[in-house]
Design a protein around this nucleic acid. Structure first.
Length: 567
RNA sequence: CGGGGUGUGGCGAAGUUGGCUAUCGCGCAUGGUUUGGGACCAUGAGGCCCUGGGUUCAAGUCCCAGCACCCCGACCA
Protein backbone atom coordinates (compact mmCIF):
# COMPACT_ATOMS: atom_id res chain seq x y z
CA UNK A 1 0.00 0.00 0.00
CA UNK A 2 1.25 3.43 -0.90
CA UNK A 3 0.94 5.75 2.04
CA UNK A 4 0.17 8.63 -0.32
CA UNK A 5 -3.08 6.85 -1.18
CA UNK A 6 -3.78 5.52 2.28
CA UNK A 7 -7.03 6.31 4.03
CA UNK A 8 -6.36 7.86 7.39
CA UNK A 9 -3.41 10.10 8.11
CA UNK A 10 -1.36 10.79 11.18
CA UNK A 11 -1.91 13.83 13.34
CA UNK A 12 0.72 15.88 15.03
CA UNK A 13 -1.46 17.00 17.88
CA UNK A 14 -3.19 14.75 20.35
CA UNK A 15 -6.95 15.13 20.43
CA UNK A 16 -7.76 16.48 23.86
CA UNK A 17 -10.06 13.65 24.91
CA UNK A 18 -7.22 11.11 24.94
CA UNK A 19 -5.63 10.39 28.29
CA UNK A 20 -4.40 6.80 28.08
CA UNK A 21 -1.19 6.30 26.08
CA UNK A 22 -2.81 3.69 23.84
CA UNK A 23 -5.68 6.03 23.12
CA UNK A 24 -3.35 8.89 22.18
CA UNK A 25 -1.18 6.86 19.85
CA UNK A 26 -4.03 4.96 18.23
CA UNK A 27 -5.82 8.23 17.48
CA UNK A 28 -2.76 10.17 16.36
CA UNK A 29 -1.44 7.42 14.15
CA UNK A 30 -4.81 6.95 12.49
CA UNK A 31 -5.78 3.47 13.70
CA UNK A 32 -9.16 4.43 15.10
CA UNK A 33 -11.56 7.32 15.24
CA UNK A 34 -14.11 7.99 17.91
CA UNK A 35 -17.66 8.31 16.64
CA UNK A 36 -19.31 8.86 20.03
CA UNK A 37 -18.60 7.95 23.63
CA UNK A 38 -17.43 4.36 23.66
CA UNK A 39 -18.00 3.86 19.94
CA UNK A 40 -15.01 3.63 17.65
CA UNK A 41 -14.43 3.29 13.95
CA UNK A 42 -11.51 1.11 12.95
CA UNK A 43 -9.63 2.84 10.14
CA UNK A 44 -7.63 0.71 7.69
CA UNK A 45 -4.57 0.60 9.95
CA UNK A 46 -6.60 -0.36 13.01
CA UNK A 47 -8.73 -2.79 11.09
CA UNK A 48 -5.66 -4.62 9.83
CA UNK A 49 -4.51 -5.13 13.40
CA UNK A 50 -7.98 -6.21 14.44
CA UNK A 51 -8.14 -8.71 11.59
CA UNK A 52 -4.76 -10.17 12.53
CA UNK A 53 -5.64 -10.64 16.16
CA UNK A 54 -8.96 -12.12 15.07
CA UNK A 55 -7.16 -14.54 12.79
CA UNK A 56 -4.58 -15.63 15.36
CA UNK A 57 -7.30 -16.33 17.90
CA UNK A 58 -9.32 -18.37 15.43
CA UNK A 59 -6.30 -20.38 14.34
CA UNK A 60 -5.13 -21.17 17.86
CA UNK A 61 -8.61 -22.22 18.93
CA UNK A 62 -9.07 -24.33 15.83
CA UNK A 63 -5.85 -26.17 16.71
CA UNK A 64 -7.61 -27.30 19.88
CA UNK A 65 -10.60 -28.55 17.95
CA UNK A 66 -12.80 -25.55 18.67
CA UNK A 67 -15.47 -25.01 16.01
CA UNK A 68 -16.29 -21.52 14.79
CA UNK A 69 -19.80 -20.25 14.33
CA UNK A 70 -21.56 -16.89 14.43
CA UNK A 71 -24.58 -15.77 16.43
CA UNK A 72 -26.63 -12.61 16.00
CA UNK A 73 -26.03 -9.31 17.76
CA UNK A 74 -29.75 -8.67 18.16
CA UNK A 75 -31.59 -11.13 20.40
CA UNK A 76 -35.26 -11.50 21.20
CA UNK A 77 -35.90 -10.36 24.77
CA UNK A 78 -37.75 -13.63 25.46
CA UNK A 79 -34.46 -15.53 25.50
CA UNK A 80 -33.08 -13.18 28.13
CA UNK A 81 -36.23 -13.49 30.19
CA UNK A 82 -35.72 -17.26 30.29
CA UNK A 83 -32.50 -16.88 32.25
CA UNK A 84 -33.78 -13.96 34.27
CA UNK A 85 -30.97 -11.76 33.04
CA UNK A 86 -33.34 -9.44 31.16
CA UNK A 87 -33.92 -7.46 34.36
CA UNK A 88 -30.59 -8.15 36.01
CA UNK A 89 -27.90 -7.05 33.57
CA UNK A 90 -27.76 -3.29 33.76
CA UNK A 91 -25.62 -2.78 30.65
CA UNK A 92 -28.30 -4.47 28.54
CA UNK A 93 -29.61 -2.17 25.82
CA UNK A 94 -33.27 -2.91 25.23
CA UNK A 95 -35.34 -1.74 22.31
CA UNK A 96 -38.45 -2.55 20.38
CA UNK A 97 -38.34 -3.62 16.76
CA UNK A 98 -40.56 -2.05 14.10
CA UNK A 99 -42.89 -5.03 14.49
CA UNK A 100 -43.18 -4.41 18.20
CA UNK A 101 -40.93 -7.26 19.36
CA UNK A 102 -38.86 -6.60 22.47
CA UNK A 103 -35.21 -7.02 21.62
CA UNK A 104 -31.81 -6.58 23.20
CA UNK A 105 -28.36 -5.90 21.82
CA UNK A 106 -26.24 -8.80 22.96
CA UNK A 107 -23.71 -7.96 25.68
CA UNK A 108 -22.69 -11.65 25.64
CA UNK A 109 -24.02 -14.85 24.14
CA UNK A 110 -24.72 -17.48 26.81
CA UNK A 111 -28.44 -17.32 26.04
CA UNK A 112 -28.15 -17.91 22.31
CA UNK A 113 -25.46 -20.54 22.60
CA UNK A 114 -27.43 -22.47 25.22
CA UNK A 115 -30.45 -22.27 22.94
CA UNK A 116 -28.33 -23.78 20.16
CA UNK A 117 -27.09 -26.45 22.53
CA UNK A 118 -30.58 -27.58 23.50
CA UNK A 119 -31.49 -27.85 19.83
CA UNK A 120 -28.45 -29.73 18.61
CA UNK A 121 -27.04 -31.63 21.58
CA UNK A 122 -29.18 -34.60 22.52
CA UNK A 123 -26.89 -37.40 23.65
CA UNK A 124 -23.61 -37.82 25.49
CA UNK A 125 -22.23 -38.90 22.12
CA UNK A 126 -22.50 -35.23 21.03
CA UNK A 127 -20.19 -34.27 23.88
CA UNK A 128 -17.72 -32.79 24.56
CA UNK A 129 -17.80 -29.92 22.12
CA UNK A 130 -16.49 -26.35 22.14
CA UNK A 131 -17.83 -23.63 19.86
CA UNK A 132 -16.50 -20.15 19.34
CA UNK A 133 -17.34 -16.90 17.66
CA UNK A 134 -15.55 -13.60 17.33
CA UNK A 135 -18.47 -11.25 17.40
CA UNK A 136 -19.38 -7.70 18.35
CA UNK A 137 -20.93 -7.09 21.73
CA UNK A 138 -22.78 -4.08 22.95
CA UNK A 139 -22.68 -3.15 26.63
CA UNK A 140 -24.44 0.06 27.48
CA UNK A 141 -21.80 1.20 29.95
CA UNK A 142 -22.67 4.29 31.89
CA UNK A 143 -19.17 5.48 31.45
CA UNK A 144 -16.81 4.44 28.69
CA UNK A 145 -13.18 5.36 29.31
CA UNK A 146 -9.67 5.24 27.98
CA UNK A 147 -10.25 4.86 24.25
CA UNK A 148 -10.36 1.19 23.30
CA UNK A 149 -9.84 0.13 26.90
CA UNK A 150 -13.51 0.36 27.79
CA UNK A 151 -15.92 0.80 24.93
CA UNK A 152 -19.62 0.19 24.59
CA UNK A 153 -19.35 -1.73 21.36
CA UNK A 154 -16.44 -4.11 21.11
CA UNK A 155 -15.25 -7.18 19.30
CA UNK A 156 -15.01 -10.19 21.55
CA UNK A 157 -13.90 -13.75 21.17
CA UNK A 158 -16.33 -15.88 23.09
CA UNK A 159 -16.16 -19.64 23.25
CA UNK A 160 -18.49 -22.03 25.06
CA UNK A 161 -17.73 -25.58 26.08
CA UNK A 162 -20.28 -28.34 26.61
CA UNK A 163 -19.52 -31.45 28.62
CA UNK A 164 -21.38 -34.31 30.22
CA UNK A 165 -19.88 -33.86 33.67
CA UNK A 166 -17.60 -31.85 35.88
CA UNK A 167 -14.52 -33.88 34.96
CA UNK A 168 -15.17 -33.20 31.29
CA UNK A 169 -15.56 -29.51 32.02
CA UNK A 170 -12.22 -29.50 33.82
CA UNK A 171 -10.62 -30.99 30.74
CA UNK A 172 -12.24 -28.52 28.35
CA UNK A 173 -11.32 -25.69 30.67
CA UNK A 174 -7.66 -26.72 30.80
CA UNK A 175 -7.60 -27.05 27.04
CA UNK A 176 -8.97 -23.53 26.65
CA UNK A 177 -6.53 -22.10 29.19
CA UNK A 178 -3.72 -23.70 27.17
CA UNK A 179 -5.17 -22.20 23.97
CA UNK A 180 -5.28 -18.78 25.60
CA UNK A 181 -1.64 -19.06 26.58
CA UNK A 182 -0.69 -19.86 23.00
CA UNK A 183 -2.81 -16.99 21.70
CA UNK A 184 -1.18 -14.42 23.95
CA UNK A 185 2.28 -15.88 23.38
CA UNK A 186 1.83 -15.72 19.62
CA UNK A 187 0.63 -12.14 19.82
CA UNK A 188 3.63 -11.37 21.97
CA UNK A 189 1.90 -9.80 24.95
CA UNK A 190 3.00 -10.76 28.46
CA UNK A 191 -0.06 -11.86 30.41
CA UNK A 192 -0.62 -12.53 34.05
CA UNK A 193 -3.24 -15.09 35.02
CA UNK A 194 -5.09 -14.50 38.26
CA UNK A 195 -7.90 -16.09 40.20
CA UNK A 196 -10.96 -13.94 39.85
CA UNK A 197 -14.59 -13.69 40.75
CA UNK A 198 -17.13 -14.83 38.23
CA UNK A 199 -19.42 -11.86 38.84
CA UNK A 200 -22.83 -11.74 37.21
CA UNK A 201 -21.84 -14.46 34.73
CA UNK A 202 -22.32 -17.10 37.38
CA UNK A 203 -20.12 -20.14 37.72
CA UNK A 204 -16.91 -20.90 39.51
CA UNK A 205 -13.16 -21.33 39.10
CA UNK A 206 -12.80 -18.20 37.11
CA UNK A 207 -9.44 -16.95 35.91
CA UNK A 208 -8.49 -13.66 34.38
CA UNK A 209 -5.79 -13.03 31.80
CA UNK A 210 -4.46 -9.51 32.11
CA UNK A 211 -1.55 -7.32 31.18
CA UNK A 212 0.05 -5.15 33.82
CA UNK A 213 -0.39 -1.48 33.02
CA UNK A 214 -0.96 1.64 35.08
CA UNK A 215 -4.17 2.51 33.25
CA UNK A 216 -5.65 -0.91 34.02
CA UNK A 217 -8.93 -0.83 35.91
CA UNK A 218 -8.39 -4.15 37.64
CA UNK A 219 -6.26 -4.42 40.73
CA UNK A 220 -4.43 -7.68 41.10
CA UNK A 221 -2.18 -8.96 43.84
CA UNK A 222 1.06 -10.78 43.20
CA UNK A 223 3.16 -12.54 45.80
CA UNK A 224 6.84 -11.60 45.61
CA UNK A 225 7.97 -15.04 46.82
CA UNK A 226 5.63 -17.63 45.36
CA UNK A 227 3.51 -17.64 42.24
CA UNK A 228 0.26 -16.77 43.99
CA UNK A 229 -1.73 -14.26 41.95
CA UNK A 230 -5.30 -13.13 42.44
CA UNK A 231 -7.67 -10.32 41.71
CA UNK A 232 -7.84 -8.08 44.75
CA UNK A 233 -11.51 -9.00 45.08
CA UNK A 234 -10.48 -12.57 45.86
CA UNK A 235 -6.92 -12.33 47.16
CA UNK A 236 -6.27 -14.08 50.45
CA UNK A 237 -3.74 -12.65 52.84
CA UNK A 238 -2.63 -13.09 56.41
CA UNK A 239 -3.55 -10.24 58.68
CA UNK A 240 -1.17 -8.95 61.28
CA UNK A 241 -1.96 -10.28 64.76
CA UNK A 242 -1.54 -7.75 67.53
CA UNK A 243 -0.95 -8.36 71.21
CA UNK A 244 -4.19 -8.30 73.16
CA UNK A 245 -5.06 -7.45 76.76
CA UNK A 246 -5.37 -10.43 79.10
CA UNK A 247 -8.44 -9.16 80.94
CA UNK A 248 -11.64 -7.61 79.68
CA UNK A 249 -12.11 -4.05 80.83
CA UNK A 250 -15.51 -2.47 81.43
CA UNK A 251 -17.08 -1.10 78.27
CA UNK A 252 -16.93 2.68 78.12
CA UNK A 253 -18.89 5.12 75.96
CA UNK A 254 -16.82 8.02 74.65
CA UNK A 255 -17.56 11.01 72.48
CA UNK A 256 -16.06 11.35 69.02
CA UNK A 257 -18.04 14.09 67.40
CA UNK A 258 -17.53 14.83 63.70
CA UNK A 259 -14.51 12.60 63.41
CA UNK A 260 -14.38 11.05 59.97
CA UNK A 261 -12.22 8.05 59.21
CA UNK A 262 -10.64 5.37 61.32
CA UNK A 263 -7.24 7.05 61.52
CA UNK A 264 -8.62 10.27 62.92
CA UNK A 265 -10.85 8.29 65.25
CA UNK A 266 -7.98 6.15 66.53
CA UNK A 267 -5.90 9.25 67.15
CA UNK A 268 -8.78 10.94 68.93
CA UNK A 269 -9.48 7.98 71.16
CA UNK A 270 -5.83 7.19 71.75
CA UNK A 271 -6.09 3.60 70.50
CA UNK A 272 -4.28 1.86 67.62
CA UNK A 273 -6.12 1.78 64.28
CA UNK A 274 -6.26 -2.03 64.37
CA UNK A 275 -8.38 -1.95 67.49
CA UNK A 276 -11.04 0.20 65.85
CA UNK A 277 -13.94 -1.46 64.07
CA UNK A 278 -16.02 -0.38 61.12
CA UNK A 279 -19.52 -1.75 61.26
CA UNK A 280 -21.36 -1.60 57.96
CA UNK A 281 -24.97 -2.45 57.29
CA UNK A 282 -25.53 -4.28 54.03
CA UNK A 283 -28.71 -5.13 52.24
CA UNK A 284 -28.07 -8.69 51.08
CA UNK A 285 -31.02 -9.62 48.89
CA UNK A 286 -33.89 -9.30 51.41
CA UNK A 287 -31.83 -9.56 54.56
CA UNK A 288 -29.95 -6.86 56.41
CA UNK A 289 -26.53 -7.95 57.57
CA UNK A 290 -24.20 -6.08 59.87
CA UNK A 291 -20.57 -6.51 58.90
CA UNK A 292 -17.67 -5.88 61.25
CA UNK A 293 -14.26 -5.08 59.80
CA UNK A 294 -11.07 -4.25 61.62
CA UNK A 295 -10.27 -0.56 61.13
CA UNK A 296 -7.08 -1.19 59.16
CA UNK A 297 -8.88 -3.25 56.49
CA UNK A 298 -11.68 -2.83 54.00
CA UNK A 299 -14.54 -5.13 53.13
CA UNK A 300 -14.29 -7.10 49.90
CA UNK A 301 -17.86 -7.04 48.67
CA UNK A 302 -17.05 -9.93 46.40
CA UNK A 303 -15.93 -12.14 49.28
CA UNK A 304 -18.91 -11.04 51.34
CA UNK A 305 -21.35 -11.73 48.54
CA UNK A 306 -19.85 -15.17 48.02
CA UNK A 307 -19.91 -15.92 51.73
CA UNK A 308 -23.53 -14.85 52.11
CA UNK A 309 -24.48 -16.55 48.87
CA UNK A 310 -26.63 -13.59 47.90
CA UNK A 311 -27.21 -12.08 44.47
CA UNK A 312 -27.55 -8.41 45.31
CA UNK A 313 -25.41 -6.73 47.88
CA UNK A 314 -25.44 -3.04 48.64
CA UNK A 315 -24.75 -0.80 51.55
CA UNK A 316 -27.99 0.30 53.13
CA UNK A 317 -29.05 3.90 52.81
CA UNK A 318 -28.38 6.39 55.63
CA UNK A 319 -32.13 6.36 56.35
CA UNK A 320 -32.10 2.63 56.96
CA UNK A 321 -28.97 2.96 59.10
CA UNK A 322 -30.74 5.54 61.22
CA UNK A 323 -33.83 3.39 61.53
CA UNK A 324 -31.89 0.35 62.64
CA UNK A 325 -29.19 1.85 64.81
CA UNK A 326 -30.93 5.05 65.82
CA UNK A 327 -27.79 6.95 64.92
CA UNK A 328 -26.38 8.79 61.95
CA UNK A 329 -24.11 6.91 59.58
CA UNK A 330 -20.64 6.60 61.05
CA UNK A 331 -21.56 5.47 64.54
CA UNK A 332 -22.86 1.99 63.77
CA UNK A 333 -21.72 -0.75 66.10
CA UNK A 334 -22.55 -4.33 67.04
CA UNK A 335 -23.75 -3.56 70.58
CA UNK A 336 -27.50 -3.14 71.04
CA UNK A 337 -28.44 -3.85 67.47
CA UNK A 338 -32.08 -4.91 67.11
CA UNK A 339 -32.61 -8.62 67.73
CA UNK A 340 -32.34 -10.85 64.71
CA UNK A 341 -29.81 -8.80 62.76
CA UNK A 342 -27.21 -11.17 61.45
CA UNK A 343 -23.66 -10.11 62.24
CA UNK A 344 -20.71 -11.25 60.16
CA UNK A 345 -17.22 -10.30 61.28
CA UNK A 346 -13.98 -10.60 59.43
CA UNK A 347 -11.47 -13.15 60.74
CA UNK A 348 -9.17 -10.28 61.66
CA UNK A 349 -11.69 -9.25 64.32
CA UNK A 350 -11.57 -12.62 66.04
CA UNK A 351 -9.59 -12.97 69.26
CA UNK A 352 -9.56 -9.26 69.85
CA UNK A 353 -10.16 -8.07 73.37
CA UNK A 354 -11.21 -4.57 74.39
CA UNK A 355 -11.72 -3.15 70.91
CA UNK A 356 -13.46 -0.01 69.77
CA UNK A 357 -16.77 0.05 67.90
CA UNK A 358 -19.51 2.54 67.12
CA UNK A 359 -22.10 2.98 69.89
CA UNK A 360 -25.20 3.26 67.71
CA UNK A 361 -25.60 6.75 69.06
CA UNK A 362 -24.69 9.80 67.05
CA UNK A 363 -21.22 11.13 68.00
CA UNK A 364 -20.46 8.23 70.33
CA UNK A 365 -18.21 5.20 70.25
CA UNK A 366 -17.68 2.34 72.67
CA UNK A 367 -14.27 1.39 73.97
CA UNK A 368 -13.37 -2.02 75.43
CA UNK A 369 -16.05 -3.85 73.52
CA UNK A 370 -15.88 -7.64 73.81
CA UNK A 371 -17.53 -10.54 72.05
CA UNK A 372 -20.17 -12.52 73.92
CA UNK A 373 -20.11 -10.24 76.96
CA UNK A 374 -21.41 -7.17 75.08
CA UNK A 375 -23.14 -8.77 72.12
CA UNK A 376 -23.58 -12.28 70.74
CA UNK A 377 -20.41 -13.66 69.15
CA UNK A 378 -20.88 -13.19 65.41
CA UNK A 379 -20.05 -15.47 62.50
CA UNK A 380 -16.44 -15.11 61.37
CA UNK A 381 -15.37 -15.29 57.76
CA UNK A 382 -12.67 -14.00 55.44
CA UNK A 383 -14.44 -10.99 53.93
CA UNK A 384 -11.40 -8.75 53.95
CA UNK A 385 -9.76 -7.05 51.00
CA UNK A 386 -6.04 -7.71 51.24
CA UNK A 387 -3.86 -4.66 51.76
CA UNK A 388 -0.77 -3.91 49.70
CA UNK A 389 2.16 -5.48 51.57
CA UNK A 390 0.12 -8.12 53.42
CA UNK A 391 1.70 -11.53 53.89
CA UNK A 392 0.68 -14.03 51.24
CA UNK A 393 -1.74 -16.64 52.56
CA UNK A 394 -0.49 -19.17 50.07
CA UNK A 395 3.22 -19.40 50.97
CA UNK A 396 3.08 -17.53 54.26
CA UNK A 397 6.34 -15.73 53.48
CA UNK A 398 6.07 -13.38 50.54
CA UNK A 399 4.46 -9.98 50.51
CA UNK A 400 1.49 -9.28 48.29
CA UNK A 401 1.91 -6.40 45.91
CA UNK A 402 -0.93 -4.57 44.21
CA UNK A 403 -0.64 -3.87 40.49
CA UNK A 404 -3.06 -2.39 38.00
CA UNK A 405 -3.96 -4.70 35.20
CA UNK A 406 -6.01 -4.57 32.04
CA UNK A 407 -8.35 -7.52 31.89
CA UNK A 408 -7.92 -9.08 28.47
CA UNK A 409 -9.44 -12.50 28.86
CA UNK A 410 -11.66 -14.27 31.31
CA UNK A 411 -12.50 -17.96 31.60
CA UNK A 412 -15.30 -19.42 33.73
CA UNK A 413 -16.65 -22.79 34.64
CA UNK A 414 -20.34 -22.06 34.30
CA UNK A 415 -21.51 -25.50 35.37
CA UNK A 416 -25.18 -26.17 34.77
CA UNK A 417 -26.77 -22.85 35.67
CA UNK A 418 -27.61 -21.85 32.08
CA UNK A 419 -28.48 -25.34 30.97
CA UNK A 420 -30.87 -25.67 33.92
CA UNK A 421 -32.48 -22.28 33.35
CA UNK A 422 -32.94 -23.02 29.69
CA UNK A 423 -33.45 -26.78 29.91
CA UNK A 424 -30.48 -27.72 27.78
CA UNK A 425 -30.32 -31.41 28.62
CA UNK A 426 -28.77 -34.51 27.11
CA UNK A 427 -29.30 -38.19 27.64
CA UNK A 428 -26.33 -39.79 29.35
CA UNK A 429 -25.22 -43.38 28.81
CA UNK A 430 -27.25 -44.42 31.86
CA UNK A 431 -30.37 -43.36 29.96
CA UNK A 432 -31.03 -40.39 32.22
CA UNK A 433 -31.57 -36.81 31.13
CA UNK A 434 -29.00 -34.43 32.60
CA UNK A 435 -28.16 -30.76 32.18
CA UNK A 436 -25.16 -30.03 29.96
CA UNK A 437 -22.13 -28.81 31.90
CA UNK A 438 -20.87 -25.55 30.43
CA UNK A 439 -17.83 -23.31 30.44
CA UNK A 440 -17.28 -19.96 28.79
CA UNK A 441 -14.13 -18.26 27.60
CA UNK A 442 -13.76 -14.69 26.39
CA UNK A 443 -11.13 -12.29 25.09
CA UNK A 444 -11.88 -8.63 24.43
CA UNK A 445 -10.26 -8.23 21.04
CA UNK A 446 -10.54 -4.47 20.71
CA UNK A 447 -9.36 -4.01 24.27
CA UNK A 448 -6.49 -6.40 23.62
CA UNK A 449 -5.30 -4.02 20.91
CA UNK A 450 -5.16 -1.19 23.43
CA UNK A 451 -3.43 -3.56 25.84
CA UNK A 452 -0.74 -4.34 23.30
CA UNK A 453 -0.07 -0.64 22.81
CA UNK A 454 -0.03 0.00 26.55
CA UNK A 455 2.58 -2.68 27.03
CA UNK A 456 4.61 -2.00 23.90
CA UNK A 457 5.44 1.60 23.05
CA UNK A 458 8.05 4.29 23.58
CA UNK A 459 7.86 8.07 23.73
CA UNK A 460 7.63 8.35 19.94
CA UNK A 461 4.91 5.83 19.28
CA UNK A 462 3.73 2.28 19.08
CA UNK A 463 5.98 -0.77 18.76
CA UNK A 464 3.82 -3.49 17.21
CA UNK A 465 4.75 -7.12 17.70
CA UNK A 466 5.39 -8.69 14.27
CA UNK A 467 2.40 -11.00 14.46
CA UNK A 468 -0.23 -8.30 14.77
CA UNK A 469 1.41 -5.28 13.11
CA UNK A 470 -0.76 -3.70 10.41
CA UNK A 471 2.13 -4.12 7.97
CA UNK A 472 5.37 -5.99 8.39
CA UNK A 473 7.57 -3.53 6.54
CA UNK A 474 7.49 0.19 6.02
CA UNK A 475 9.45 1.23 2.97
CA UNK A 476 10.51 4.86 2.94
CA UNK A 477 12.04 6.81 0.10
CA UNK A 478 13.84 10.03 0.89
CA UNK A 479 14.39 12.87 -1.50
CA UNK A 480 13.31 13.55 -5.05
CA UNK A 481 16.26 11.89 -6.73
CA UNK A 482 14.94 10.01 -9.78
CA UNK A 483 17.24 7.04 -9.20
CA UNK A 484 16.09 6.73 -5.59
CA UNK A 485 12.43 6.87 -6.51
CA UNK A 486 12.92 4.36 -9.28
CA UNK A 487 14.73 1.93 -7.01
CA UNK A 488 12.18 2.40 -4.23
CA UNK A 489 9.34 1.71 -6.63
CA UNK A 490 11.08 -1.42 -7.87
CA UNK A 491 11.69 -2.60 -4.37
CA UNK A 492 8.06 -1.97 -3.46
CA UNK A 493 6.93 -4.08 -6.41
CA UNK A 494 9.37 -6.83 -5.47
CA UNK A 495 8.11 -6.90 -1.90
CA UNK A 496 4.52 -7.12 -3.12
CA UNK A 497 5.53 -9.98 -5.43
CA UNK A 498 6.91 -11.81 -2.41
CA UNK A 499 3.64 -11.26 -0.53
CA UNK A 500 5.29 -9.02 2.01
CA UNK A 501 2.83 -6.73 3.74
CA UNK A 502 4.45 -3.43 2.97
CA UNK A 503 3.45 0.15 3.55
CA UNK A 504 5.36 2.35 1.13
CA UNK A 505 5.76 5.94 2.28
CA UNK A 506 6.15 7.52 -1.16
CA UNK A 507 5.09 10.99 -0.07
CA UNK A 508 7.07 14.04 -1.02
CA UNK A 509 7.77 14.99 2.58
CA UNK A 510 10.86 15.87 4.57
CA UNK A 511 12.89 13.18 6.27
CA UNK A 512 11.87 14.18 9.76
CA UNK A 513 8.22 14.15 8.82
CA UNK A 514 8.32 10.65 7.41
CA UNK A 515 10.54 9.18 10.09
CA UNK A 516 8.43 10.56 12.90
CA UNK A 517 5.31 9.17 11.27
CA UNK A 518 6.99 5.78 10.99
CA UNK A 519 7.91 5.83 14.67
CA UNK A 520 4.36 6.75 15.58
CA UNK A 521 2.71 4.04 13.49
CA UNK A 522 5.15 1.48 14.79
CA UNK A 523 5.59 -0.98 11.92
CA UNK A 524 8.21 -3.51 13.08
CA UNK A 525 10.70 -3.09 10.21
CA UNK A 526 11.67 0.08 8.36
CA UNK A 527 13.59 -0.02 5.12
CA UNK A 528 14.81 3.33 3.93
CA UNK A 529 16.28 4.29 0.58
CA UNK A 530 17.98 7.61 -0.09
CA UNK A 531 20.67 8.79 -2.46
CA UNK A 532 23.09 8.25 0.37
CA UNK A 533 22.25 4.54 0.71
CA UNK A 534 21.84 4.01 -3.01
CA UNK A 535 25.42 5.08 -3.61
CA UNK A 536 26.45 1.95 -1.76
CA UNK A 537 23.75 -0.21 -3.40
CA UNK A 538 22.18 -0.61 0.01
CA UNK A 539 19.32 0.42 2.26
CA UNK A 540 19.02 1.47 5.87
CA UNK A 541 17.49 -1.31 7.96
CA UNK A 542 15.83 -0.26 11.20
CA UNK A 543 13.77 -2.45 13.44
CA UNK A 544 11.24 -0.51 15.48
CA UNK A 545 12.19 -2.26 18.68
CA UNK A 546 15.91 -1.55 18.21
CA UNK A 547 17.69 1.72 18.90
CA UNK A 548 20.27 1.55 16.11
CA UNK A 549 19.81 1.19 12.39
CA UNK A 550 22.15 -0.78 10.16
CA UNK A 551 23.11 -0.75 6.51
CA UNK A 552 22.12 -3.76 4.46
CA UNK A 553 23.13 -4.21 0.85
CA UNK A 554 20.28 -4.56 -1.64
CA UNK A 555 21.34 -8.01 -2.66
CA UNK A 556 21.29 -9.29 0.94
CA UNK A 557 17.91 -7.77 1.64
CA UNK A 558 15.88 -10.86 1.00
CA UNK A 559 18.08 -13.04 3.17
CA UNK A 560 17.92 -10.53 6.01
CA UNK A 561 14.18 -10.32 5.67
CA UNK A 562 13.77 -14.07 5.87
CA UNK A 563 15.86 -14.13 9.04
CA UNK A 564 13.82 -11.30 10.48
CA UNK A 565 10.54 -13.11 9.88
CA UNK A 566 11.88 -16.40 11.22
CA UNK A 567 13.01 -14.80 14.47
C1' C B 1 -26.02 7.70 39.00
C1' G B 2 -23.37 12.17 41.82
C1' G B 3 -19.63 16.01 41.16
C1' G B 4 -16.44 18.93 38.02
C1' G B 5 -14.98 20.62 33.20
C1' U B 6 -15.24 21.61 27.90
C1' G B 7 -18.02 22.71 23.20
C1' U B 8 -15.03 28.46 18.11
C1' G B 9 -12.76 25.76 10.00
C1' G B 10 -10.13 18.69 9.79
C1' C B 11 -6.74 19.05 14.68
C1' G B 12 -4.90 22.18 18.80
C1' A B 13 -6.03 26.82 20.76
C1' A B 14 -6.99 32.79 21.57
C1' G B 15 -11.08 35.89 21.72
C1' U B 16 -10.74 41.50 27.72
C1' U B 17 -15.99 45.06 31.19
C1' G B 18 -21.06 42.63 25.06
C1' G B 19 -18.87 46.59 19.87
C1' C B 20 -17.00 47.24 14.07
C1' U B 21 -14.58 42.41 8.63
C1' A B 22 -14.00 36.08 14.24
C1' U B 23 -7.94 35.44 15.31
C1' C B 24 -3.43 32.26 15.64
C1' G B 25 -0.55 27.61 14.94
C1' C B 26 -0.86 22.83 12.54
C1' G B 27 -3.12 20.53 8.46
C1' C B 28 -5.33 21.27 3.31
C1' A B 29 -4.88 23.52 -2.14
C1' U B 30 -1.70 26.03 -5.96
C1' G B 31 3.22 27.78 -7.45
C1' G B 32 8.32 28.04 -6.23
C1' U B 33 12.74 26.98 -3.20
C1' U B 34 14.07 22.68 -0.06
C1' U B 35 14.97 17.08 1.54
C1' G B 36 18.55 12.21 7.05
C1' G B 37 14.56 13.62 12.54
C1' G B 38 7.94 17.16 12.14
C1' A B 39 11.84 22.94 6.21
C1' C B 40 10.62 27.86 3.93
C1' C B 41 8.26 31.82 0.88
C1' A B 42 3.95 33.52 -1.65
C1' U B 43 -1.15 33.02 -2.74
C1' G B 44 -5.71 30.68 -1.50
C1' A B 45 -9.95 27.54 0.12
C1' G B 46 -12.45 26.25 4.32
C1' G B 47 -16.99 28.89 9.96
C1' C B 48 -24.94 27.51 11.74
C1' C B 49 -18.64 30.26 17.18
C1' C B 50 -22.94 22.81 20.00
C1' U B 51 -28.63 23.54 19.65
C1' G B 52 -33.03 26.26 21.00
C1' G B 53 -35.08 30.34 23.49
C1' G B 54 -34.32 35.11 25.89
C1' U B 55 -31.98 40.14 27.24
C1' U B 56 -29.92 44.22 24.08
C1' C B 57 -29.30 49.27 19.25
C1' A B 58 -25.67 45.20 19.16
C1' A B 59 -24.31 38.31 21.60
C1' G B 60 -18.77 33.76 20.26
C1' U B 61 -19.10 36.89 24.77
C1' C B 62 -24.72 37.89 29.35
C1' C B 63 -29.27 34.81 31.13
C1' C B 64 -32.41 30.21 30.80
C1' A B 65 -33.16 25.35 28.91
C1' G B 66 -31.35 21.29 26.31
C1' C B 67 -27.64 18.18 23.73
C1' A B 68 -22.76 16.22 23.18
C1' C B 69 -17.99 15.00 24.86
C1' C B 70 -14.07 14.52 28.69
C1' C B 71 -12.35 13.76 33.74
C1' C B 72 -13.11 12.24 38.92
C1' G B 73 -16.13 9.55 42.13
C1' A B 74 -19.80 5.95 42.75
C1' C B 75 -18.82 1.33 50.58
C1' C B 76 -14.39 3.37 53.53
C1' A B 77 -19.08 4.86 58.33
Amino acid sequence: MRYSKFFGKTQKETPKEAVAVSHKFLLRAGFVHQLAAGLYEFLPLGFRVLAKVDQIIKEELAKKGVQHLLMPLVHPASLWKETGRYDKVDVLLKFTSARGTDCVLAPTHEETVTDLARRYIHTYKDLPVVVNQNQWKYRDEIRATGGLLRTREFLMQDAYSFDRDKAGLDESFDKMVAAYHSIFARIGIPVVVVKADSGTMGGSDSQEFGVIADVGEDRIMLCDKCDYKANIEKAESKFEVHKQDKEMKPMKKVEGKDIIGVEALAAHLGVPVHSTTMTLLFQADKEIVAVMMRGDYHVSETKLRNYLGCKNLNLTTPEVVKKITGAEVGYDGPVNLPKGIRIVADLSCKDRINFEAGANETHFHNLNVNFERDFPTPEFADIREANDGDICASCGKGKLQVKNSIELGHVFKLGTCYSEWMKANFVDNDGKSKPIVMGCYGIGISRLIAGIVESSHDEKGIIWPKTVAPFTVELISLGKDEAVLKRANELYEELLEDDVEVLYDDRDESAGFKLNDADLIGIPLRILISSRTLEKESVEWKERSEKEAKIVSLKDLKKNYENFIAR
